[in-house]
Simulated assay, not measured.
Amino acid sequence: MPGGPRCVVGPAGSGTTSGRYETPQASELQRLMWTKNGTSGHLDQVQPRIYVGDMYAAKDKRTLHAHRITHVLNAADGRFNVNTGARFYRGTKILYHGVEASDVPSFNMAPFFGPAANFIRSALSSPTAKVLVHCVMGQSRSSTLVLAYLMIHEQRTLADAIRDVSAGRHICPNAGFLEQLRGLDAELNSRRARRC
């Protein structure tokens, strides 16, 4: 679905009131995730040149090579998570960015939205680049960062981003991350409304 700034968003039930977009409630966003046909493989393409995967995909250099992955964003970086890092990918030409996040609702992922989104955008500026965004299971931390990227740099609403990503992979940001994404959605939509 093509992105772009919006002043008015679609039909009833899509987060609109009087034709003006409003961030949907968490329960409505969860329903969107549950009703999509995405898979839960080790590595799934969720957007052109963007993949979401788990720790097994991240540690399988053959699979990464076969999919021509050039950039890895680890949303579960660190010694007690998926401890890969740039050294792990030495000799592969893969560029690495790590976010040391815990998959608990109390963890504040919001400070990482901008840097992670910028890493993905920078990677995709090369027409041959492909990005793997992963965590342990590839459902909560990694999907949260991909959703934030789509909202920040592709001007998607949170509802649209969830529809797009969950069509390619089963995703389930934890309740805290979903609330943080709702906050980002409200902030970005407020900015768009001021420009209209």
Rank of each mutant, 00 (worst) to 15 (best):
M1I: 04
P2A: 03
G4S: 09
G4R: 07
R6I: 13
V8N: 00
G10I: 01
A12W: 07
G15T: 06
T17N: 08
G19R: 05
E22C: 15
E22P: 05
E22F: 04
Q25I: 10
A26M: 07
E28V: 10
L29A: 07
K36N: 12
K36V: 05
G38C: 09
S40W: 03
H42G: 05
H42S: 08
L43K: 09
Q45K: 14
Q47R: 14
M55S: 02
Y56P: 02
K59R: 13
D60T: 09
K61M: 06
H65R: 15
H67F: 12
R68S: 09
T70E: 03
A76G: 00
G78C: 15
G78N: 05
N83H: 09
N83V: 06
Y89Q: 09
G91I: 14
I94W: 02
L95M: 11
A101L: 14
S102E: 10
V104K: 05
S106T: 14
N108G: 01
M109R: 13
F112Y: 11
F112E: 07
F112G: 02
A117S: 15
I120G: 11
I120K: 15
A123Q: 09
L124P: 12
L124A: 04
T128I: 05
A129P: 15
C135M: 05
G138P: 00
S140Q: 14
R141K: 14
S142E: 04
S142M: 11
S143V: 12
S143E: 11
L145A: 08
L147M: 14
L147H: 07
Y149K: 15
L150F: 00
E154N: 12
R156G: 00
L158D: 04
D164K: 03
S166D: 04
P173W: 04
Q180A: 13
Q180C: 15
L184D: 02
L184M: 11
N189Y: 01
R191M: 06
R194M: 07
R195G: 03
R195Y: 02
C196M: 05
